[in-house]
Simulated scan of single mutants.
Amino acid sequence: MTTEASNRPVRRTAKDIRREETRARLLDAAKNLFAEHDYDSVTVTEIAREAGVTHGMINVYFGGKPGLLYEIIRQTNALQYDDTLNVAAEEDSALKQLERTLFSWIDGDTEDTRLLAVMQSYSWVWPSETELDNQTVRSGFKAVIAKIVSNGSGSGEFRSSLDPHHTARSIWAIYTWGIRAAIFQGATALECHTEIMLQVRQLVLADP
């Protein structure tokens, strides 16, 4: 049963606002420092100093420096997932949907290639529970690609023999490798997209 009181918006207290502001300052400080230097070189003391708080606040809000970095990754993924859903929902051919979806990923990831490099390198050493959480997030992205592939195969635009989920994993691998050119070779988003889509077309398009 819904009561009138339960429909009222939750009132944010001054303490809630200060907590949110502190979290935001720590995240901004960490993003800047991780990108300017690298994850291992930056200390919690430096992050706290940049944010204007005590270093104990990092443990309070994020459980330490690894949790702080993963929160940056989590927020980045959440924004990109929303963009992915919006782009993939636009009516067009399956290939055009793939092109737009992958470009939205590239455009977001190459916004700060230094931070991208930090986030990717950390993904090789983070705890197993963090990896499980991130696998769940990645599954959401791959599901969008799998649906596009399924629609393309059903319409005859893509190869009819494609397994949507296997193909989505292959496209994810192509993307993950292709985006490295932005980090190590200074490639632009458009250059990365061109190379990635060349391989994706070879994978999915039906034989003429």
Rank of each mutant, 00 (worst) to 15 (best):
S150L: 01
S6G: 01
V144I: 12
D92S: 02
R12L: 13
V53E: 08
D40P: 06
V204Y: 02
L162N: 03
R12P: 07
A181S: 15
P66T: 03
I73K: 15
D163K: 09
G63P: 08
E91A: 13
Q75G: 12
G56E: 08
E195Q: 13
E71I: 06
L190Y: 05
I148R: 04
Q75K: 12
L85E: 14
I145Y: 10
Q97A: 15
D109Y: 10
L162V: 03
D112W: 05
N32D: 12
T76H: 00
S121G: 14
V87D: 01
I72W: 01
T54L: 13
V137K: 06
M197E: 03
T84H: 12
V44E: 14
E99G: 01
A189P: 03
E71A: 11
F184Y: 14
Q185G: 05
D107I: 07
K65P: 06
V144K: 09
E191A: 11
L27C: 09
R100F: 08
Q120R: 15
T43I: 05
R159L: 05
E90W: 13
L190P: 03
T43F: 05
M197G: 08
H55T: 01
H166K: 13
A51F: 06
I196R: 05
I183N: 09
D82G: 07
E131Q: 08
E20Q: 11
A51C: 08
T176N: 11
I73N: 15
L68P: 01
E46H: 10
L162K: 08
A94I: 06
A181G: 15
Q185K: 15
D207W: 02
E21R: 05
A189H: 00
Q120E: 15
Q135S: 10
L79M: 14
V144S: 08
I183H: 09
G64I: 12
A51R: 00
G140R: 07
K96G: 14
Y175C: 05
A29Y: 04
L85W: 11
F158Q: 01
L115D: 03
E4T: 11
T136P: 00
N59Y: 12
G152T: 03
A146I: 09
R201W: 02
L69T: 07
W126Y: 04
Y61V: 03
I58K: 07
E71G: 08
P127K: 13
D207R: 10
I174K: 11
A5F: 11
D16F: 09
T176M: 02
D82C: 10
A89T: 04
A94G: 01
A24P: 04
A51G: 03
T54G: 15
K96R: 15
V137C: 09
N7Q: 14
